[in-house]
Design a protein around this nucleic acid. Sequence first.
RNA 1: GGCCGGUUAGCCAAGUGGUAAGGCAGAGGUCUGCAAAACCUCUAUACUCCGGUUCGAAUCCGGAACCGGCCUCCA
Length: 465
Amino acid sequence: MALRLINTQTRRKEEFTSLEPGHVRMYTCGPTIYDFAHIGNYRAYTFEDLLRRYLKYRGYKVTQVMNLTDIDDKIIRGVNKKGITLKEYTNPYKQAFFEDLDALGIERAEHYPAATDHINEMVAIVQALVKKGHAYEADGSYYFKISSFPKYGSLSHMKLEDLKAGARIAADEYEKDTVSDFALWKAWDEADGPVYWDTPLGKGRPGWHIECSAMSMKYLGETFDIHTGGVDNMFPHHENEIAQSECATGRTFSRYWLHCEHLIVEGQKMSKSLGNFFTLRDLTAKGYSPVAVRYLLLATHYRQQLNFTMDGLDGAKAAVERLIDFKRNLQAVEGGSDNADFPAIVQKAYDGFGECLDDDLNISGALGEVFNFVKETNKLMSAKTLSKADAAKAVEALEKFDTVLGVLPKKEAGIDADIQALIDERIAARKEKNFARSDAIRDQLQAMGIILEDTPKGTTWKRQL
RNA sequence: GGCCGGUUAGCCAAGUGGUAAGGCAGAGGUCUGCAAAACCUCUAUACUCCGGUUCGAAUCCGGAACCGGCCUCCA
């Protein structure tokens, strides 16, 4: 069966087809690089990574764009406070972001355009909108005229007249024709200090929404396949993107919209005041492995709110370990004749894995299939009825699944010579029944994060996750 | 006020009409110098509540409670 995705636009599960056969173009709303990203942000990026990896698993070529928002009110405030340039302010957070992506095993997108590198493209869109009567200038700023786009609200299913005009309408927005019109370009203001661009639109800076329109269309074309983001971006951000993009080009902007639910921590909204606000660095500092965090973020369906708990993190770690151990045990299988039941077990795993993920990326179901495969194969292994060739096929399947899951170590890390020397010494000590010495070595290695496994076949080791 | 999700065992979490996947935790076992690790086996009268439709409902419809989200720059 084909891949089906729930499109926010229609609220229906739709069969996915790409505009260009075999090639998916997707745009993913990225971070504002004014601080370290938190695990809620990474939930969204992990979901996008799952989508990307599964599209590739299904044989698509993927061109993904993730923007880096490096201009907004908070960044301007930070720049002026510290008296440094905008790039000087944002670069450390940009670097930290990529470090976190690597730690979490999130594949790199093809493009990471920064907003401030695309001012000209944004200006061009604003000019096109003005020319077509969809935008107007007021006191040096430019606004999108929502009343000129009847389709406005079709993504979030919100009606303008239902919106509560409330406290969040800033007092300085009086010059807009109607309060719901949003800024495409903001005129320079003294508080902006040195942060501005001189453009045909005047001296100022871009609004927030326009960057995504400009950069997605530049790298993916006027119409592309998938646009993703967190649910909070559905309105107004994505709604505004659609309005400005479609009015500028006269074409459909994104064909599918996917929105990721938020995560909560221990059943509560993540907030600094509750003390349950975590960056990836906060968790690794507590000794948690990034791959455990990845698994936890990945394992819940993306349209479901994810309850992030420390117990859950321990459970995620144990689940990943089970997969890693499964692979190690398979690789140690020797000889034997092929098991007649095994081909059906592998086939069932492949089929189940694909069927679940085809169904709007049902990752929990897919993981269930993987663990059933692990259990059934382990059963054959412990009965010593699995052949070396069977085991190789099982490893192949597991590695194939892991192209989507991304939780297995890329390659076994080497072992230091002195660690090997300790292991050898312990083996010798055990032969001489010098258990005091062998236990001391065992403790020493454990303190170094090396777990020993004394099996009937001898002593092996693994790194603690 | 408008709109949108959710509520499944000790915890996490699939399942959208046919009688409840999977992971963690827990118990037992194999192995072991003892452990650990790994693996196997087992376990739980778990579908928020109240009505309705149906031969049959976690699943569909109506209502309630609770939790959470969006309503102009927050993934």
